[in-house]
Design a protein around this nucleic acid. Structure first.
Lengths: 167, 167
DNA sequence: TATAACTTTCAATAATTACTGAAAGTTTAA
DNA sequence: TTAAACTTTCAGTAATTATTGAAAGTTATA
């Protein structure tokens, strides 16, 4: 496998994984491209490389900036804008986990709390609803908080020691 | 909030969270419904409750059975088939994490390994590709294995002790 | 301040994904 | 072995989501 093949394979695989971390294909592909680029890229560069339209590129770059994983780079003397992504995988994971948690998991935890707090009218079905949503609430909250904690560690010594512990 | 409101809120919220764990809305809703039901439900019950078609119900039930989180229940003397879901949240989490890992994460890890193993031709861009995909490979593999390990613990003492450790 | 170089917006369209419903298939029991 | 009771399949359609492209907007510099 040569450089071009490897690059293409990486971008398309990582792009299709986008759904796993809650972003669309183009967004994931743009991030992938920047992630392995040795220098900042312009919108033209990205459009040409991924063969996507100007509008699509613009909108998805904006979303990536909203997520905080892509930033504009001003190159002195250059009119056009250049873009780079966070290059440290740990930091990337931290940002993504935090955003997903805030946007998707926390609202669900809130609803689970509400639902599991309805008044127990003594009926079997109400008891079951309360019991099950409470269990789900506890699990979701624990998982959410664990990911938050883990991912907030800048160094990864803790990851290593955790792995040791659970092996 | 009364029982019916709470039930509806739970099913629709948990259903829309489906995307987070990689399944579609109807599938998540069916699972939710079974999860808070005090007894096995038939296809008719599910169709009526969620207002979805017979075909949709059938296909999504099948998928849930493929995932291993819903099972057919044979009720003696009854012609029609009844369905139940795994009621233990820990076990549910275990199964889901394992399936997602197998279906989505492992194939990506494989590609990352391939891509990061291309021959270093000495060029800057090749070095960058190798370096970045290797970092991603290590992170993904570590995260995948951690989730696998955590979720494989039948008891949750380890979750508790881990939480203590990282607090 | 005019204009060229660039970016953003958004209505239209394309692509993808989910859902329906009816026909075909299966099973059970009389 | 037939018929009723049920489930599955899948082509067609609907709903959702992503993408384009051109017009509008912005900014830098001559």
């Amino acid at each position: 496998m040569n450089y071009e093949e490897a690059k293409h394979k990486f971008i398309s695989t990582w792009g299709s994984l986008g759904s796993l971390w809650g972003i669309n294909k183009a967004m994931a592909q743009i991030q992938s491209l920047l992630f392995i680029s040795t220098k900042p890229l312009s919108m033209e560069d990205i459009m040409a490389e991924l063969k996507i339209s100007r509008g699509n590129t613009s909108m998805n770059l904006r979303q990536l900036m909203d997520w905080g994983i892509v930033t504009k780079e001003i190159i002195p003397g250059e009119r056009r804008e250049y873009f780079t992504t966070e290059k440290d995988v740990q930091e990337l994971a931290r940002v993504i986990a935090k955003e997903r948690s805030r946007r998707e998991i926390e609202p669900v935890i809130k609803v689970l709390k509400e639902v599991s707090s309805i008044e127990d009218d003594g009926s079997e079905k109400t008891k079951e609803l309360i019991k099950q949503t409470k269990a789900l609430h506890d699990l979701t909250e624990t998982a959410n908080s664990m990911v938050g904690k883990l991912v907030n560690q800048k160094q990864n010594w803790i990851t290593k020691s955790l792995l040791k512990l659970i092996n």
